[in-house]
Design a protein around this nucleic acid. Structure first.
Length: 363
DNA sequence: TAAACGTGGAC
DNA sequence: TGTCCAAGTTT
């Protein structure tokens, strides 16, 4: 029966495939490996709508892997700002340099070759091999895991079920059109076999789906509970020059927000900061720090950060003596959490998110 | 092996 | 408001 899976999925894909900028329609020649690679890196743990504008900008600015390799890494980081998981941007640049300089601009066309490159793991190597080079590699991402867990009623929770799901993926991957098959399985997972309420009536695998027969599709794949998210607290130092520019710094190259610009702040502590302790961590001495009204919250994968801010002013001459760089708040290109810190500045009107409260009660 | 690593949208 | 989650990789 497994042999019957691929043809059904491919026939569905021929009719229902999503049109995406990094993709060729079914039956057309494969897209350039550079585009496949760029899109796959951006799509790691990231939604298609979020990737869309970044992909367009990167491709317009750096049309080839050589162009990207030749770019200063800070420009690549800046272009990535807002997309998240910034190690991807650093590895993207490293990978471009490896391909451009060591491989003459030619991406490896095998899973093993691709796995050697920075930022390319099991999923991405298989995806590039299948989509760009038509290799029959078994592609296993979150979508495919879900489709297979339901199709074969795998009740073992993730991530323990991964080896079993991988075997199933290898079992159903066809020798013909493996790239289309990989994309078809992902489209199926993204549009029909969705996490919460799968649209089984529209599914081409309705008949062979064991979970559907047992009425447990929506509950698969099972997942082991994750740890609670701790709360941390920080106070940002919004130090402003007479021309309005604020002090920013470059974070260390690795770790959280590695290589990105930051607003100076207290350490991110597990308890709120007593007012008297805040100035101990200030980026400049002898500044009259004034607490600002308002607070912001930012949720990372593994902790949440409650943010308050203090405001200070500094003369143009004194400002030149500090480490860091000065940028106008509206023009700074920053990770989202840092933009939220700047959002606490007195005259920064755009609180885009719904932020009613404060003052008047409900009308 | 498990934890670190961002963000925004959906329900 | 809270929880889940999206085309994972690295250490």
């Amino acid at each position: 029966m497994d042999a019957a899976i691929a043809p059904v999925v491919l026939a569905w894909y021929d009719r229902q495939h999503r049109r995406l900028p990094w993709r060729s329609p079914p039956g057309q020649p494969a897209p350039e490996p550079y585009r496949v690679w760029l899109s796959e890196i951006m799509l790691q743990q990231t939604t298609v709508p979020a990737v869309m504008p970044y992909f367009a900008r990167f491709l317009a600015r750096w049309p080839s892997v050589h162009d990207l390799a030749a770019a200063p890494v800070d420009e690549v980081m800046e272009a990535w700002a807002g997309l998240g998981y910034y190690a991807r941007a650093r590895n993207l640049h490293k990978c471009a340099q490896a391909v451009s300089e060591r491989l003459g601009g030619i991406f490896p066309d095998t899973v093993d070759g691709l796995l050697e490159l920075p930022g390319i793991g099991a999923y991405t190597a298989a995806a590039i091999a299948a989509i760009a080079f038509d290799r029959p590699a078994a592609v296993l991402d979150g979508n495919v895991e879900r489709v297979l867990a339901r199709l074969f009623a795998v009740e073992t929770p993730l991530p323990q079920a991964k080896p079993e799901l991988r075997r199933l993926a290898e079992q159903v991957t066809p020798q013909q059109r493996p790239g289309d098959f990989a994309q078809a399985m992902m489209d199926l997972g993204a549009t029909v076999c969705t996490p919460r309420s799968p649209d089984c009536l529209l599914c081409p695998l309705q008949a062979p789906c064991i979970a559907r027969a047992r009425g447990i599709a929506a509950g698969l794949p099972r997942k082991t509970a994750k740890a609670a998210r701790p709360q941390r607290h920080a106070t940002a130092f919004l130090l402003q020059r007479p021309d309005g520019a604020v002090l920013l710094r470059r974070r260390p190259p690795s770790g959280l927000l590695g290589g990105m610009l930051e607003v100076p702040s207290t350490p991110w502590h597990d308890t709120p900061w007593p007012a008297d302790d805040i100035a101990d961590h200030a980026p400049a001495a002898r500044i009259a720090w004034a607490p600002l009204p308002g607070r912001a919250e930012h949720v990372f994968t593994h902790f949440a950060l409650a943010i308050t801010a203090v405001h200070g002013r500094i003369g143009a001459a004194a400002a030149t003596k500090l480490d860091g760089l000065w940028q106008q708040p509206a023009e700074a290109v920053l990770p989202t959490v840092m933009k939220k810190m700047l959002g606490l500045l007195p005259d920064s009107a755009p609180k885009s998110k719904r932020n009613p409260r404060r003052g008047q009660g409900r009308p």
